[in-house]
Design a protein around this nucleic acid. Structure first.
Lengths: 163, 163
DNA sequence: TAACAATTGTTATTCTATAACATAACATGA
DNA sequence: TCATGTTATGTTATAGAATAACAATTGTTA
């Protein structure tokens, strides 16, 4: 069994942890985490909330790198394929995956105010959806589970400003 | 308790049923199901699979009606607000709601081959997501639950062509 | 080094969605 | 009925998201 390192047990930022995990997985799989791909992954993890493709492109251009949309989308496609990031369909944004390389679909709580995302792995949800699919002879290839709402901090903010 | 009519118990097409339900709900709410809104709802229900906004626009233009994107999007916004249709975020398409007016989020099985959609109302999924949210002090405003895959018919098609 | 594959650069285009303002239809009270 | 305000639609332009197609570059391997 592969022993996966845990973010909290090391003296690393989450970004550093994510990058080194990605390096490891890529080596194991014989695929290349190029400078560009690495940088895009870093940009995503450095940001507190998920980023859109064009926001990532802006950062790349700030780096001094030349680039057009395909540059970003190709890197994103790679990172998605390898399971290093997730795409949130309801917002057209990308966020780092907490179980890199696992190729899972993921479930998300998304705050519509601050944009922060909480990634869940609720087996009940997953199992219930698979059961529904099976009952209908439906072959599942991907799940999109995104819960939009407001986090505690933003609710407190809002009620505070209301006074 | 309001007695809601059921599609299968009447000699109506599903489209006719959906339109008359919408009429009723609009009257109850004092909002207007205008010719345009009614027609957009009809277009969506008449089609076997969900439609994108621009596909709907094409149909409207075929009707001879003049129109630009905002024409369609405003009608869609109204229908979404009233709970007569759903938007499938993973495909950027719109599909008729089987419980019109209920303002629920819905759960969907979407066949990536034929595009057909099955709308679920799985309480376990809903409850599990709400529980996760509550545990994190997260206030839910909408759920996006979309399962992408292949329906039985399309799987049979595929294996048949493979021979 | 030659040849091939994988990656990135570049230009253009398609698809999705909204901003902003003009016009038309509807409702309401004087 | 007409003046007024509101709601809905028409219209033009643009923003935002994603991909097609081809060129140039880099990496790898025989």
């Amino acid at each position: 069994m592969k022993q996966s390192s845990d973010c909290s047990s090391l003296q690393l930022t989450t970004t550093q942890w994510a990058l080194s995990e990605a390096e490891t997985v890529c080596q194991q799989r014989g695929v290349r985490l190029t400078e560009l791909r690495r940088r895009v992954l870093e940009i995503i993890w450095n940001h507190s909330s998920p980023l859109g493709a064009y926001a990532i492109l802006d950062v790349l251009r700030n780096d001094g790198r030349q680039g057009a949309p395909p540059t970003v989308y190709r890197a994103l496609d790679f990172l998605l394929e390898q399971g290093f990031i997730h795409r949130l369909a309801s917002l057209n944004v990308f966020t780092g995956c907490r179980q890199p390389g696992a190729h899972h679909s993921g479930q998300f709580l998304i705050c519509r105010d601050c944009g922060q995302v909480d990634e869940l792995s609720n087996l009940t949800v997953d199992a219930a959806l698979r059961a529904e699919a099976m009952a209908r002879d439906f072959e599942v290839s991907a799940q999109t589970v995104e819960v939009l709402g407001r986090c505690l901090m933003c609710r407190n903010e809002a009620s505070h400003h209301a006074n």
